[in-house]
Amino acid sequence: MEAIIKADRLSKDYKIYKDHKGYLGALRNLFDRRFTLVHAVNDVSFRIYPGELIGYIGPNGAGKSTTIKMLTGLLVPTSGEVQVNEFIPWKDRKDYVKHIGAVFGQRTTLWWDLPVRDSLELLKHIYEIPSDRFKQNLDSFRAILELDAFMDTPVRSLSLGQRMRADLCAALLHDPKLIFLDEPTIGLDVVAKQRVREFIQFINAKRGTTILLTTHDTADIAKLCKRIMIIDHGKILYDGEFDELIKYYGGSRVLSVEFAEFYQDPTIDQAKIIQRDGVNVIYSFKREDISASKLIHQLSEKYRIRDLEVQDQAIEDVIRDIYENQLLYN
């Protein structure tokens, strides 16, 4: 299958100019061209294939939004190449953006002062969406995203969750084959998050839309994405299946025990005590060292147990481990 996005050795440096304040400050900004460079995205290559739903994750400032801005043609790459279908995003901007959709969770792409309805109507003209298609799409999205309650509210008065739903609808009215979602669940409550997730899944499954998604919520990833790319300091650390990553790096499991009486030294081979509070003890162990049932068996032979629970290490923690310990750097 031919890749829909091809990024090759893509880099973006931001130039940070010294910011002069006060009288004539602006004039000096114009002529004082000394700058420092921020290597926001550094030599990144990847392929994305039609129909994929990919999670693009990494800590704050990793370079996710910068990558997306290059892929959507908002920023000109400092070096490297990017091609989406037959387009070079920043060069063919006007023709290219007809075929994509984008939602930036941090800010709306709708008209601040216009009611949602008028905003969407305006998009119909901007994208030259045929009337029947527009109506079909709008009707379907309105139902799934439950837009009706605020169709006539100006965008500036919408709650975050409402705004995100309006933005999602707006990004999809023109039937883009490819959409970019930069933190579409940021700041949403659990219900709203769930609704947005379901919508993303629907679009990907039912319409075959290719989706590149960034998020800080690992639950988004766990629920939605088969493949993930992890970026940090502008470099891709991992590109592959999410399950593989968890299996490989998330081997450690946790056993929480409540003993029936207090033991001075409830140690056991092949498991590590990571927390201890009276009769409550938490062990950590590796799947490959010992199975849960064996561990519990050994414990119950030596001690009297009132209650216990086995958990896989939270995905959240696995990802944090990877970020913090730069596990993927080897």
Binding site: K69, T72, G73, L74, R93, K94, D95, Y96, V97, K98, A102, F104, R107, T108, T109, I126, Y127
Partner: peptide, 14 residues
Amino acid sequence: IKGTFDQLLLRPVN
């Protein structure tokens, strides 16, 4: 300053 110029660049219009 706020970066809302992004939104203009996303539209297939001059």
